[in-house]
């Protein structure tokens, strides 16, 4: 039994284990705040540049209050890079009115589109990162249940998160044993061993699913997950969490009305 942190665990690296006001908020309040915030951001007209400034300041204030290190947030923002690259291309291939920057002809509309995607994508992703960095996965699941997300769906997500690391580690071990036998594929037609191990992993996963089902039956499972919830959000939780989407919605209204 090696430690849980061997081979780069995907699930464990999500939560940043420190104490803060944001960490302590009830998860359902945080989920509602997150959705309210990103929806407001997504609806904001792209020409209201100042509004995105307000959003960025607001979300980074939350990052600051949560004590999550900025470099953690920035590193995890890397997932949006492929789309950033696409966004940067738009002014070059876009049509409509053109402007010349440093001798290169760029689409004005395309520049706006690029700005729109960059601003919304980075602010939205930062908000998601704050949620997962300050909320443990079991708490996120509790929050989803309290928000009346169908229990079956939450349970499926719970099982997925529970077994994800186990599967990733199994896959990692298979790959290590392949490398140990000098299999280092570089071309598509050399992937057969990798695919075979993925197939074997599927079979193992399915069999585990059946064994887990038996373990559930043995403990009285009859097809519905029991409710195990205890402390729901307090008014304080709600009002604290609401501060972020309220700022965003007010900003949105001002941006649209002006």
């Amino acid at each position: 039994m090696s430690g849980a942190h061997a081979n780069g665990s995907a699930v464990d690296s999500l939560h940043v284990d420190i104490e803060s006001v944001v960490h302590r908020l009830a998860p359902e309040a945080k989920l509602v705040a997150l959705v309210g915030f990103v929806v407001a951001v997504a609806l904001t007209p792209r020409t209201s540049v100042w509004a995105f400034g307000v959003y960025a300041v607001a979300i980074w204030l939350v990052v600051f209050v949560s004590h999550v290190p900025a470099r953690v947030v920035l590193r995890r923002l890397a997932v949006i890079v492929p789309f950033v690259l696409f966004a940067v291309l738009i002014p070059f291939i876009g049509g409509g009115e053109q402007t010349t920057v440093l001798g290169v002809s760029l689409s004005v509309d395309g520049l706006w589109a690029m700005w729109n995607i960059l601003a919304k994508a980075s602010i939205g992703a930062t908000a998601s990162i704050v949620l997962s960095a300050t909320t443990r996965v079991p708490d996120v699941l509790t929050g989803l249940t309290r928000l009346r997300v169908p229990r079956v769906l939450v349970a499926i997500i719970a099982f997925m998160m529970r077994y994800l690391d186990l599967l990733v580690r199994q896959l990692g071990r298979m790959r290590t044993s392949m490398t140990a036998r000098c299999h280092d594929p570089r071309w598509l037609w050399q992937v057969k061993p990798i695919a075979s191990s993925a197939g074997a992993l599927f079979v193992r996963s399915y069999e585990r699913g059946e064994r887990v089902h038996q373990a559930m039956l043995a403990r009285g499972y009859t097809g519905t997950m029991p409710t195990l919830d205890r402390r729901p959000a307090t008014a304080v939780d709600w009002s604290r969490a609401a501060s972020l989407p309220v700022v965003a919605v007010v900003t949105l209204i001002v941006a649209v009305v002006r």
Partner: peptide, 20 residues
């Protein structure tokens, strides 16, 4: 790992009695 399928130890130990 087949027996412990819930997100936390607390929920896992509660699973059986909650079903009852």
């Amino acid at each position: 790992d087949d027996q412990l399928f819930m997100p936390t130890v607390r929920d896992d130990v509660a699973f059986g009695p909650a079903n009852l």
